[in-house]
Design a protein around this nucleic acid. Sequence first.
DNA 1: AAAGCGCTTTGATCCATGTCAATTGATATA
DNA 2: TATATCAATTGACATGGATCAAAGCGCTTT
Lengths: 210, 210
Amino acid sequence: MDRVVQRAKRISLVDGEALFQQGDTATRFYLVVEGHMKLFRLAPDGNEKVIELVDTGHTFAEALMFLEQPRYPVGAVALGDTELISVDAADFSAILRDSVDLCLALLGDMSFRLRSLIREIDDLSLHSATCRVAAFILARAPADCDDFDLEIPKHVIASRISVKPETFSRIIKSLKSKNVLEIKGSKVHLLDREALEDAADVCGLPVEAT
Amino acid sequence: MDRVVQRAKRISLVDGEALFQQGDTATRFYLVVEGHMKLFRLAPDGNEKVIELVDTGHTFAEALMFLEQPRYPVGAVALGDTELISVDAADFSAILRDSVDLCLALLGDMSFRLRSLIREIDDLSLHSATCRVAAFILARAPADCDDFDLEIPKHVIASRISVKPETFSRIIKSLKSKNVLEIKGSKVHLLDREALEDAADVCGLPVEAT
DNA sequence: AAAGCGCTTTGATCCATGTCAATTGATATA
DNA sequence: TATATCAATTGACATGGATCAAAGCGCTTT
């Protein structure tokens, strides 16, 4: 374990700086100490889809260690100035060999991610854009407080939930007109949490459905 | 290991029979010995999206063992008469404790699944329906032979790739009219594999793009 | 202040898919 | 041989969201 820590690196990125590109060979994984990372896929036409927003305290790319020929399936850039710790996959792998518990913990972590991704697919194919917007905002809202900050540019959020910035803006406008919430800059103020929850899971369902 | 095998069960399902429902508590996982399983999510409005088609020789639901409160995030029904082996998660978990190698193998397996799901999300949000149809058919085609059987009803395939059966049918028709392939019942005959590959990754890109 | 530059918003229009409905075909049932 | 059933196809139409284009709005820089 000492060895891992010793060989771990501290990395500082400025806003917008890339950590790796989609397709790069993966030999390390990362922990976000400060800031946010954006993981995204690029389409051949240059379109980009944000797969995951990694917040402070979370790791990413650790699931790749176990593939035969590990290449990052996504690109990674910093959102805002960001601090990372980078760990060598081989070092870490060696540790895993000595600790079944750590293995199991990792398996748990990956299970969780797997399930999140299934939810995501569900969301994309079974729910409308409005629904996804509502769910996203809800997920970011603290349980106890109706005012908070989306710490992330709106166009990035839009890509995260697979809508165009224009559409995102219009959906927000519509929610505003229904007195569900207000957004001023990046400050969100929830007016009717329940209505937002409805929008999130009722989706496009006709309200009169029994 | 003996214990696992002893306590494993053999299960036979007839076509359309359900193994478990979305939301059921998960205590076992499965290996398909014969036939196919369909894993799917249900939307509140009854719409269904096939998440995965599990072919003979593959396992499913093993990733759930590591969650706190394991519930199947999908439902499972047999496509055609199907034989399974069912393994108790707790038993298997105990074995994992004794074998780091097995742990690592599982981690590898889960890595792979994770990556597949990322591809899937990419596909859904970055590629057109035509593109997904082409990719699906290519994935099912043997490398060496241009004639093969989709062993699965078309409407299930359609759901798997998130298009409506009608749209699926139209896309096939269009590919047929371009002399890319022919489909008669469930028999596929590839006429122009290269064109199909183009359709699969070029997607909706204008061909004149450099 | 003015000018420049991203980001966000708004409006007008378009299009890929979904929806609804009818027809055909293919099996299975009586 | 009729008939009910279910999958697959086809046509007509509706629509959510994308696209294109033009402002508006904070910013920082000069």
